[in-house]
Amino acid sequence: MSLLSKLQETLVCLKAGRVTLPYPAQAGPVPETFRGRPIFDAARCIGCAGCASNCPAREILVVDVCQEIRILQYLGRRCTYCGRCADVCPEKAITMSREFETATDRIGDIRQRLELFMSTCQRCGRCFTEPSPLEQLKLKGYRFDDVQNERWIFRSQAYLTSEAAVDDISIDLD
């Protein structure tokens, strides 16, 4: 009996043949829907900070340098490629790319920094017809971090120094 089962097992192996892929020597294709490293598009971003306040890993910082300039930094350290930022972005400024080989010793390879010019609407004071993109998000069930905490979204803070903004993260000023 056992001999028969050994023969059957041999058959299973022989039938399968060789299946190993030549990774990492060759990177295989990934599906359309793959969630890789998020890529931020400065041309589309409106600086609403929806991504920053919905990122579970708190990997996106939004800082106002002065009245007109807002900086969005994607830190890329413990980003889990969950794709929530891309989900919530009202302007589709974030694409989940197909990049997954993102191991590096140089964080600069991964980090992204957007400098956004923010202007105030002269006519109405707010830039959108209602509901604004953020209010639309809320209607879809998204909520924002408690603003009182203000740990992750830094409101207008005059000028940024190169001192650590959050305990473990220093923001380089180019």
Binding site: T104, R106, D109
Partner: peptide, 24 residues
């Protein structure tokens, strides 16, 4: 999540690491 601080002395960039594994 575990945040491992790398103790490596050599700093590898992403591009270098990919080149390294693609060498056949």
């Amino acid at each position: 999540t575990i945040d491992l601080k790398s103790g490596a002395t050599r700093v590898w960039s992403q591009a270098e690491l990919i080149r390294l594994v693609r060498k056949t």
